[in-house]
Computed example of a mutant assay.
Amino acid sequence: MQTKPKIILSTLDLERLEVLLDRPEYQAFPGVEALGEELARAEVVEPEQVPPTVVTMNSSVRFEMLPGGESFELTLVYPRDMNGDPQRISVLAPVGSALLGLSVGQEIEWPVPGGRNIRVRIMAVTYQPERAGEYHR
């Protein structure tokens, strides 16, 4: 069994995500259970204590595919903020919940079409609300 990486979550993100999980319109999403599991295992800190290299809600993240080195960038958002932009990923998507709380340098498996997985490494958190002092977004 593979050990899950350590994750850090702000008290504000935890509160907002717990409210989201309680909303009936999101109960059918496939990522609801996985997100709940991630919230339960997270180290929770005040927003001002979140390290600048941690993926929080509304963070933009640059990834590197392994092996190969091809990179791409995505922003982790709430379902209501999914507007068809391919550069956004919902926290209720399985990959979205897996990204929440990870830090630069950590790696995850990423499912791709065709039923296979690729491995990606977080190279940078190019924008993080907490680092920018934006606690009430």
Rank of each mutant, 00 (worst) to 15 (best):
L100M: 08
R119M: 04
R116I: 10
R121I: 06
S71K: 15
L74W: 11
R62I: 09
M123W: 06
R121T: 07
R121Y: 09
G105D: 04
L66Y: 10
L92G: 08
L92K: 10
G133R: 07
R80M: 09
G68Y: 04
A132Q: 10
G105E: 05
S90Q: 00
V120K: 08
A93T: 13
V61S: 07
E73M: 08
G68V: 09
E107I: 06
V104W: 02
E109K: 13
F72Q: 07
L102T: 06
A132M: 13
V120Q: 10
S71Y: 02
N117G: 01
W110V: 15
D85F: 12
L100I: 05
V112F: 01
V61C: 03
R131A: 15
L100V: 02
E73I: 03
V112Y: 05
E109A: 15
A124T: 06
L92H: 07
V104P: 05
L99H: 05
R131I: 02
V125L: 05
M65Q: 15
Q106Y: 08
E130I: 00
L102Y: 07
A124W: 02
V91M: 07
E70W: 05
P94R: 13
P129T: 07
R80F: 05
R80T: 08
R62W: 02
I89D: 00
M123P: 00
P111G: 06
I118C: 00
